[in-house]
Design a protein around this nucleic acid. Structure first.
Lengths: 367, 367
DNA sequence: CCATCAAATGATAGCGCTAACACGATGATG
DNA sequence: CATCATCGTGTTAGCGCTATCATTTGATGG
């Protein structure tokens, strides 16, 4: 009885307080009356706790009660308040994803894989865009961690010291993507940019090109490693020449590809192959070579990086290094969800590799 | 005194409870001790409420107190708990953004504009990807609204009835983007897809093409309107012919552009111009025409839609309909933030228009 | 020096939910 | 038949913050 009175009082004052705000608009009041877990509990003749359990861990509630509650939930259109839930439980179902760009096709594909894998699960993706800025990344990590996320997917391994410290002591699971290396914070899914770029350079050399140059836009850490790979193989082959290294801090684009080719050919007119930082540059490079009536692949070879869909469709089709972007997204989400479900990964660092897609643009007739 | 004891008790039990969980790892316990607003309040010799005010509405706190608090906040590394804040205040700083695709360059640009405009503000972007599914969109809207967002940016005007009902009675500001039309839920920033497509079709006709065809992938509502625009102008000019309308439900890609051209030319070999649903298709169409040695623009004209950066860089450069994607993002975020700050928009529906970018691919020598 | 009022600050009471424990009912066990 | 584990459910006590109103402080003018 005492309980009933307390309960009625609580409801009464809640409605009373709410009502006062809508004295001039009773209709709006009615519309905004929020359905809480207690409303469901009352209608179903159970306690709020049982409703909570029925929704979060149904196996702990008898089938009969569960179905009764489900029916009331549907009838009243109850939706749990995530803020209250997070506050009470001390954690959320949020998985934060931090990428350096949303415009870039590469990350768009990774995101797609992540979304795809999270489908149907209880985990909520929250996307953060660091725009290649370590400071912005730091801010994002701080913001995400304050939300007590279940997990974090973050791009690369070149975080600032402050970010790294936060991540190391973070109370959630972490997956680094896009790269492979030693000392992960927790888990890691990616591939070796250095090896990929070395393989691409070797492909050019094997195809009979003697003076390969390289175009690099926006030197983020992964591009740097790719450039390093080119240098190693160029030196190995004894064809290293700084004139043939064209870099810029500008973000890559098709137009930029054309401009960089122009730059490269003016500095080193004997260049006979171009390794591009990514496929946008490669496409731009191809268009520019066509405008200059340089025959691809005989006079000049072109190789991109990432193997976006358009590379195979281009005319001529363009050689590129296929990276498993969708798989990286899927795998990172999968390993994270598994870990959250208590299934520790056998191998916390996974190298998904790459593949050289040799096409017309590097198909020089060998002598 | 009473207060002090209560306070000490509270702290004590908090620490005691926390401690029990870390009996086997005291170090971890120390690391995880969360700094709360009360810790800051105690250190700064003010009440929790004053700390809260100092952070959320600094102008309500004296300069001296504010600075003292700021110093303590920095020293302790206090970060407010957004869940607690949301629960107590009944609202959040979250702005939900719902787009049908994250892979698509078009939306990537819009997102970029949105992010850009939100920079430095207190508003938090949260991205939802409906993947062109009205049901998924409904789920997203429900989820977002349960988080009591400050605002919502949603793509288009073709929501399901349930979604529309939720949005109409939602307790937050709403901006629809990418389209312009009557009866917005609240505010609207976009352009007329019908008009844009009519203008593009007229451009082809004016350029001397007599038998323009059209390629359409993934018939979302906006594509439908674009198709409608083509039909109107084709009929106006008396050149309407269903053989020249090639559509597919598959998502667009460069490769698909090539395939659809093949389809179009086999059905209607006399086609002399191709209006493409988007730039990916246009690029693929161009490559396919080049493979078939069809001279662009003399034998066949090509026009894209959206004017992605690569259209100008292509060889030949490709005519396209420039849409102001970045501006749409920026404008939608701006009008939303203004509204949230109490600055009602003068014009709740804004048409940002479009621009026909005539280039080589439709530059037929007129007779 | 005090009344008056605005500005600054504090005390109180939740926001809606869940962890942790309590408790009763049920069935299994010796 | 007492004993004990197990299951399903209820009770209690917050999670960390802010709305609201009460109170204090300081500035101003008579």
């Amino acid at each position: 009885m005492m309980l009933a009175i307390t309960f009625v009082n609580r409801r009464f004052f809640r409605y009373y307080d709410a009502a006062r705000k809508y004295l001039d608009n009773p209709l709006e009041w009615l519309c905004n009356l929020k359905v809480t877990i207690e409303d469901v509990a009352r209608e179903a003749n159970v306690s709020a706790m049982t409703v909570s359990r029925a929704l979060r861990s149904p196996e702990k509630v008898s089938t009969k009660t569960r179905e009764k509650i489900r029916a009331v939930v549907d009838r009243l259109g109850y939706v749990p308040d995530p803020a209250a839930s997070a506050l009470a439980a001390g954690r959320t179902n949020v998985i934060g994803v931090i990428v350096p760009s949303v415009t870039n096709n590469v990350f768009a594909d990774v995101m797609l894989g992540i979304y795809e894998q999270s489908e149907g699960s209880k985990w909520q993706i929250q996307l953060g865009n660091s725009r290649y800025s370590p400071l912005e990344e730091e801010r994002l990590v701080r913001t995400f961690l304050s939300q007590k996320p279940a997990g974090l997917i973050i791009t690369g391994q070149d975080q600032s010291k402050a970010t790294a410290d936060m991540l190391k002591s973070a109370n959630c699971r972490i997956v680094q993507i896009m790269e492979c290396g030693p000392d992960p914070y927790d888990m890691m899914i990616g591939f070796s940019h250095l090896d990929a770029s070395r393989a691409a350079t070797r492909h050019l050399l094997k195809s009979g090109y003697r003076n390969p140059g390289v175009l690099m836009a926006r030197l983020d850490p992964r591009s740097q490693r790719r450039l390093e790979g080119y240098k190693i193989e160029a030196k190995n082959a004894g064809v290293y020449d700084t004139r043939r290294i064209v870099t810029t801090a500008r973000p890559s684009s098709v137009t930029l590809g054309g401009e960089l080719v122009a730059d490269l050919l003016s500095k080193a007119p004997d260049t006979d192959a171009i390794l591009c930082n990514n496929d946008d540059l490669a496409l731009g490079a191809m268009f520019e070579c066509q405008r200059r009536a340089l025959a691809i692949p005989d006079e000049i070879g072109i190789c991109g990086f990432n193997d976006l869909e358009m590379m195979a469709a281009a005319n001529p089709s363009i050689t590129s290094v296929r990276t498993h972007r969708l798989d990286m997204g899927r795998a990172s989400m999968k390993i994270l969800i598994d870990a959250l479900n208590g299934k520790e990964p056998v191998e916390p660092v996974q190298d998904l590799g790459f593949e050289i897609m040799a096409r017309q643009s590097t198909g020089r007739k060998t002598d």
